[in-house]
Design a binder for these strands. Structure first.
Lengths: 157, 157
DNA sequence: GACGATTGTTAGTGCAACATACAAAAAGAG
DNA sequence: CTCTTTTTGTATGTTGCACTAACAATCGTC
């Protein structure tokens, strides 16, 4: 065996570095997935004490921004399907952060709105998001942040 | 900005295009999540006929690149924990793409290697990845791709 | 009024991340 | 060399999320 690679102690800095993942390092999708994973982990870490996920915070945020929004509208903003949206809204409603109401102009739709507890939780969550964002943005200049957001937008728009 | 604005419920009448997501549009994490979602969706769409997920392809790819790698090593490369790695390896082994073997130099470890079917599937998968990447990279210049990968690496490294 | 489309809903499937616990093997300390 | 700690693989269970398929109520249109 030519490669004694069993030396995987936590402090081993992997001298091979870029060769570790070979051709994969040119795959944009791979880097997006890894970056998302890193962001996801730090987010959940930051939000353990609030017991909220990214999706849940985003939903609270968007409902606050769009009072009386219907679930379909919310799903479109978040690029989720109806079933997934249902599950998230159910969870937030069960925890008393969100209320469903009857839509006056369309009997099929329901309105979504934050409760007082929801508004309060959102305020707390926003502070945590700021902290999370500080961690994330710390590796970039302001110019780079703008550029990064612009490129990411090109992907999801 | 030609933004194909979604038709929201009539109860949110005065929202202008770019205000759709308000302050959220300055949150890097939000854009990473949306971009990841878009990439994820296109990936699964591209790979329905192969019935493979991103993770599974990555594992096949990395095992091919690192013959006899142990699950722990794989987990480190992919930034996953052991339990998650187990689940993915189990699936790939059950489908005959991967084999576990005994490690000669460490009784705790097991070696991971591709079967012939695994190698063949990986070859097919790589073609699909190339197609998927073409879709992804089509919105960027080569210079931008390099810049994007570099910035994403700063996040996950 | 009938018909097709939309909306919310339920149920079920699959993947993945995480935590916990356990056994076997290795590494380290005395 | 023992004794202890760490590492590795494994099993189990929970949670969150994405997706599909089906269904009822409602809306818009013809």
């Amino acid at each position: 065996m030519t490669r004694p690679k069993e030396i995987l102690s936590p402090t081993t800095p992997h001298v091979e570095g870029d060769d570790d993942i070979g051709e994969i390092r040119d795959i944009v999708g791979f880097h997006i997935r890894l970056a998302y994973g890193a962001v996801y982990r730090h987010f959940t870490e930051t939000f353990t004490h609030l017991d909220l996920t990214q999706k849940q915070v985003s939903v609270l945020w968007l409902v606050d921004l769009h009072p009386d929004i219907a679930q379909t509208g919310l799903a479109q903003l978040m690029r989720m399907d109806r079933a997934t949206t249902m599950a998230i809204v159910n969870r937030l409603q069960a925890r008393g952060y969100l209320v469903r109401g009857k839509s006056l102009d369309d009997g099929r739709k329901q309105t979504l709105n934050l409760t007082d507890a929801g508004r309060q939780m959102l305020a707390t969550a926003k502070d945590a998001v700021v902290e999370h964002e500080r961690w994330l943005k710390s590796r970039f200049t302001e110019k780079e942040v703008v550029s990064l957001i612009e490129m990411l937008t090109r992907i999801h728009d």
